[in-house]
């Protein structure tokens, strides 16, 4: 059924799409990949997670209250902060704090800018229709940059510990000794975003734009929205990556210009 320019999906239509998973199941069986269980679990999880967030969003959209929107935004931010660390291979005391602060400051700052300055909706910033999807998209990408940057920093410092310490022994400050790893980490966090801007619209149509096209928005409007979002995401990723790298640097080096390599442990070890 068409409603305001888009086709409203019924449960049976979703079920038709779900039947496609049988194709994957057939491949798994045919080639004895042993993926059957994972496939079922992954499909079920995806359905349950999306339905849950659908109901949560419906409730948030209907409530139209500042507190509800803020609460959801805080939960999303904390989950992103924790998930960013979970994807890395090493831990240090305070890493979850560093990641969460970086996610929070970068994504909230950029989302606020997007809503207030770009969309010009400063007085109704809490409207969930804009705040939640924009924050969500920025969080998803910032989280990626943060985890890549954090992982690279820890990796560089561990692998090149001898170079860092050599610089310190020759009179380098901790910043001078760590600037190579810091630079590499920030680059690593930002490169996927730059690559994605390079190919967007050529290799793939971005998800948000596709969604808008499906819901009947004119292509040029959808493109404008996408451009705005890409810029917001790029700056959120940059801010978040720089934030987590600097906070980690401050934690891993003390004021006496000593590299506290003992603080870094492999994930899963105490």
């Amino acid at each position: 059924m068409t409603v305001d320019g888009y086709i409203e999906l019924k449960a049976w239509q979703v079920a038709i799409a779900a039947s496609l998973v049988l194709l994957n199941a057939a491949i798994s069986l045919g080639l004895q990949l042993g993926l059957g269980r994972s496939l079922v679990v992954a499909s079920m999880r995806m359905v349950v997670q999306l339905l849950l967030i659908g109901y949560v969003l419906r409730w948030v959209f209907q409530s139209d209250s500042v507190l509800t929107v803020l609460a959801l935004a805080v939960i999303m931010t904390i989950i992103a902060g924790v998930a960013a660390v979970r994807r890395t291979e090493r831990r240090y005391p305070g890493v979850y704090w560093a990641s969460s602060v970086s996610v929070l400051v970068s994504s909230w700052l950029v989302t606020s800018f997007g809503i207030a300055a770009v969309l010009q909706k400063a007085d109704t910033w809490y409207e969930p229709q804009y705040a939640i999807p924009i924050l969500g998209m920025i969080l998803g990408n910032t989280l990626n940059g943060i985890s890549l940057g954090l992982n690279r920093l820890e990796d560089e410092l561990v692998v090149h510990r001898n170079l860092v310490e050599m610089s310190l022994t020759l009179g380098a400050t901790s910043w001078e000794a760590a600037r190579g790893p810091v630079r590499q980490a920030v680059r690593t966090g930002m490169i996927p975003m730059i690559n994605s801007m390079m190919v967007t619209g050529i290799v793939s149509l971005p998800g948000m734009m596709t969604g808008q096209l499906l819901s009947g928005v004119s292509p040029l409007q959808a493109v404008k929205y996408q451009i705005v979002i890409m810029f917001l995401i790029a700056s959120g990723t940059a801010l978040g990556t720089v934030g987590v790298v600097l906070l980690s640097f401050r934690r891993l080096f003390n004021r006496n210009h000593q590299f506290q390599s003992g603080l870094l442990t492999a994930a899963g070890h105490k």
Partner: peptide, 28 residues
Amino acid sequence: RSQATYLHQRPALIEGTVEDNLRLPFTF
């Protein structure tokens, strides 16, 4: 540390030439 300098058992060199390595401290 620039006055009381520690030398590691295993030398740590940056990528590049010998001269690049000798010039490194002057960037501090």
